[in-house]
Design a binder for these strands. Structure first.
Lengths: 341, 341
DNA sequence: AGGGAGATTGATATCGTGAACAACCTGCCG
DNA sequence: CGGCAGGTTGTTCACGATATCAATCTCCCT
């Protein structure tokens, strides 16, 4: 009586058909409409059909804000990553979002850049929306933030890293170990001169450290090195190589913190008349498309970023649904020898 | 009295300090706490200080779900793009999200893949969260969805495309025009033989059509062409070129629907002994990093994806704030001649 | 001193839904 | 035929905040 279908009572005209309107139209209680939408098994078929018809006729669209307030479940997950301009993060975010949507959750995306205090602020901000779960990048958090996360009492999954004390769930791998594996790989190929182009990204720094330590462990040293800004790009790889090309030994093995850097380094090396792989062997990280399909294809330390997102979604959903999910998922990495070594 | 700071009444223990708790602690009404947070100008400084202290002491975190229900403003924007695995969309999403966060909004990300019905479903799903605005990709919508969007009564910005009847705001450019510009560019360089590698993406198809039409308008024709799946990749460019390499004229100009395709085509062409640009001139689209920094750098039709996201955010915020924002923002494109032409 | 404008604070009424419990109805069993 | 179990539907209230209007209080001017 109060609200004709097209003349809602709210401020602007529009989709303000509410559950009570549907209920009135179908001749049932609002709660019954809610049940048709959320727990259809608990409604008799004839009633459900009438309700569905009313929903259709009125163009009713449930208000998940109200539902979330009432049920204290937002059906929303917040994801905080430094950037999605790099495949390193766009890949897991893509698969994670896909998987969560499949399960009826939406993903709120927040970008933290590469500053810790910015991430802290983002965490506080998204918690105000009461997400049902949280995806974070990396495993290094301040005690204050850890306490905040614990008191928020929601499942948290941290990706791309590993560490002694995860906040909750962890999906990643040991970066230092991977760096060491690359060093071993080079040594096995008979290399004795090493160089590195490494971004100032917390995890890239761990990989580099693992690489450098293992090189030292073999009694060998770096002949050249350069740090790059994060997130690092093809251009950084090119300028980085340009700066160290004079210091390279006749046969040097170059460790790069990402495939983009590796691709840039390879491109620049050739322009300087340095043959790849004869004079300069290169290993990247990430198995990005460009590394796989350029020529020669770039040897890389591969971790499936998409798989990380998928496993993170699995673990988070399991935890949300009360299952006792694994709290530490180690994803495998492997070195894929290709044309640059 | 009821709720000691650490012992909230809700289900799980945790951040269930609410605005009434803060109010009690500060000796004010809940409404005053709300004002301290939302309209601090309307509270006297001594009172505000007491409230801020109470917030600090109790670790109060506002519940934006409840606030959103009450104020009918979610402070949230939904963004629906086909994928973020391609820089074509990750770039605008990145800048858009950054800009919206700056303005106090969060961005809910939904991935629609390349199916229209999937996008329709996503639109319905996100509208249930009552976003304050919507970012969509492309300008082709069914009448039903357009009606739904209009009835939802929120600002909508469509990016990456242009058309006669935008739903609301539009930030993009004319793809057919761009395709034609590439044809003109090639013709000006004296080319008479053309080829195309084009993804089955709605906008790539428009660009191709513009290219083909303009080629025909010059009285010339394509000697070879291949369609690729969307989203297309470097690999698609390589396999695509492999399939047409036998049909190429001694001097052919190749139109590619993206820089990734162009890079793949260039890589594959060289492996087949086809010189770039002498025997095969190539023009890509998007000005991706790989095109800029590979060697030779790839001639491309450039549109600043990041700028699209930024302009979209501007326009949406203006509309939200009641300003009479422009409803059609045309972003410029330009052909950047580099080493492949 | 009276009074009105403007600043500050409070009380009340929703916002639209789902949880919890109550009521009813049906059918079957003893 | 009474009563109980199980399925179905309804009633009531709380979720946590903000919009709105009312009530003070202050200050200043005539």
């Amino acid at each position: 009586m109060n609200n004709l279908p097209g003349h809602p009572p709210g401020r602007g005209p529009g989709a303000s058909v509410k559950i009570t309107d549907v209920a009135a139209r179908a001749g049932v209680a609002p709660m019954t409409v809610s049940r048709v939408l959320n727990t259809p098994d608990r409604v008799s078929e004839p009633t459900a059909a009438r309700v569905r018809a009313a929903i259709e006729e009125l163009g009713y669209m449930p208000n998940l804000i109200a539902g979330g307030l009432s049920s204290r479940r937002s059906r929303m997950i917040a994801a905080i990553v430094p950037t999605i301009a790099s495949p390193m993060f766009s890949a897991p975010v893509q698969t994670f979002t896909d998987a969560m949507e499949q399960a009826g959750y939406h993903v709120m995306l927040a970008l933290s850049g590469y500053g810790a205090e910015s991430e802290d602020a983002q965490i506080r901000a998204v918690l105000a929306r009461r997400p049902d779960g949280l995806l974070l990048t990396g495993a290094q958090r301040s005690p204050a933030i850890r306490a905040l996360l614990r008191s928020a009492n929601l499942p948290v999954v941290e990706i791309w890293d590993t560490g002694p004390e995860p906040t909750d769930i962890l999906v990643g791998f040991d970066h230092a170990e991977m760096g060491a594996a690359v060093a071993d790989f080079f040594v096995r190929q008979g290399h004795t001169n090493f160089a590195a182009l490494c971004a100032r990204d917390p995890r890239a720094i761990l990989r580099r450290q693992g690489f450098v330590d293992r090189v030292a462990h073999h009694g060998l040293t770096l002949v050249a090195e350069r740090r790059l800004d994060a997130p690092s790009s093809i251009e950084d790889g090119r300028t980085g190589l340009r700066q160290i090309v004079g210091q390279l030994a006749p046969r040097t093995a170059l460790f790069c913190s990402s495939d983009l850097v590796a691709f840039g380094a390879m491109t620049e090396a050739r322009l300087h008349g340095v043959n790849v792989p004869e004079q300069l062997a290169i290993c990247g990280f990430g198995d990005f498309e460009v590394a796989r399909f350029c020529s020669p294809a770039i040897t890389t330390a591969r971790v499936d970023g998409g798989a990380i997102g998928a496993r993170a979604a699995e673990a988070l959903l399991a935890r949300i649904n009360g299952a006792t999910a694994e709290s530490r998922v180690l994803v495998p990495f492997e070195i894929i020898p290709r044309g640059t070594t």
